[in-house]
Design a protein around this nucleic acid. Structure first.
Lengths: 217, 217
DNA sequence: ATTTATTTTTAGACAAAACTAAAAATTATT
DNA sequence: AATAATTTTTAGTTTTGTCTAAAAATAAAT
């Protein structure tokens, strides 16, 4: 698999989680910042290699083989992110870009030894699950802070959006994975929330709440 | 710089150390397992980018800029090798191939943090010097075991040949970096040596001796 | 000092992965 | 249901890095 093919498979994987019936050509093009015609070309090639099942105009889905490949790429990406944060002391907003390159390093032995070196983590620095060597991943009962019930105790377990801007905003507000959160009130007008975050009361917009994953404590 | 360009620069760097007056097109082609015509094409491009100075039929040398780029690639390669051996417990015969991929990861911050994580090593697992962030490298007074003087105490400090076969032979003979070596006798007929290796007496061929670097103890 | 051998370069072609522009199919709208 | 809008595909180029085959330059040998 070339780097380009791997990037397509990875994007199709992520889009599949949202639209499992079939991923649109345009959606792929959008994610990869390329043109629909380029996507069509690549889909034919990936179909040839039996990584996706594709029929003209009908969208695309991953085959078993493609699904497994995708999970292995995601595994590599997320393990490298853990390495960068836990071992090299990068901050969580810096690691995505570097992991985009590291995820294409080929050796399976490397990634399994890295996994061991990191003590087999189940989640990456943004709270996303890391597939194990078999491709299995832990699924936890998480939902968005915007859906929280008032006066209930939650823990922050992930971010929906991993952009540098959002992550740096969270740093500024002292919100991190493991932070405890209780929603005290929700403003009618703009759905902004007043929350108790690790025993400090702060106010956050609905846009923020819609990008933070929590679970019950 | 593309991966291909980086590979050319790296090969020209290594060949320059042997033939500093100018590197031949064919020599580059041999190292990269490609054709002379492809090399000519690439030399034009690298010359365009001012990474090499090149004039037709006269061989090629690195410019200051190209020389620095080469050292940064070598730096990355060798630091990753240290990581693989020291942190992930790879053996020294497995790491070259993986480092060939890792050396092309772009982030400078990554490599400097990795350097720090590894405590700023000066040598890689094969005894080759690692350029620091400025491109400087430690030069030690090493020579080949085949040139050793009888009954003198030496330490093994490197290998000239990093092939899997040679490294595994050394493992089998318990020869590693840091091993103490004293040559007791040299056979007239085939130049094979009888040596005391960490207080055990063994015999090695001239071919082996010509690929082991030592320094005076 | 020619001739021969080797090395290097040029010219033209190819595969991968992208692009543009136009055509075809699907979906949405009146 | 017919038309309009959108999405997707096809057809034909482009760029990067490679190749083969032939030509040109350099080096070696008689």
């Amino acid at each position: 698999m070339t780097i380009s093919e791997e990037n397509y498979i990875k994007v199709i994987y992520h889009l599949s989680l949202v639209s499992p019936k079939g991923v649109n050509t345009n959606a792929i093009a959008g994610m990869l910042d390329t043109k629909a015609s380029s996507v069509t070309d690549m889909l034919k090639k990936l179909s040839e290699k039996e990584l996706v099942s594709y029929q003209k105009y009908q969208g695309v889905t991953l085959t078993e083989k493609g699904f497994h490949s995708a999970k292995m790429i995601v595994r590599k990406h997320r393990l490298w992110e853990v390495f960068l944060v836990d071992k090299l002391n990068f901050s969580w907003d810096e690691v995505h870009e570097i992991a985009e390159e590291l995820e294409h390093i080929k050796s399976e032995k490397l990634i399994n030894k890295l996994d061991e070196f990191l003590s087999f983590p189940s989640f990456d620095p943004h709270g996303d699950p890391i597939p194990n060597a078999k491709g299995e991943l832990v699924k936890i009962d998480k939902f968005l802070l915007s859906e929280a019930i008032l006066n209930t105790d939650y823990v922050c377990v992930g971010v929906k959006n991993s952009s540098v801007e959002f992550l740096q905003y969270l740093d500024k507000q002292n919100i991190s994975l493991g932070s405890t959160i209780k929603v005290i009130s929700r403003e009618e007008f703009d759905s902004s929330l007043t929350i108790i975050l690790n025993s400090n009361t702060i106010s956050i917009s609905n846009k923020i709440a819609e990008n933070l994953f929590i679970k019950v404590q």
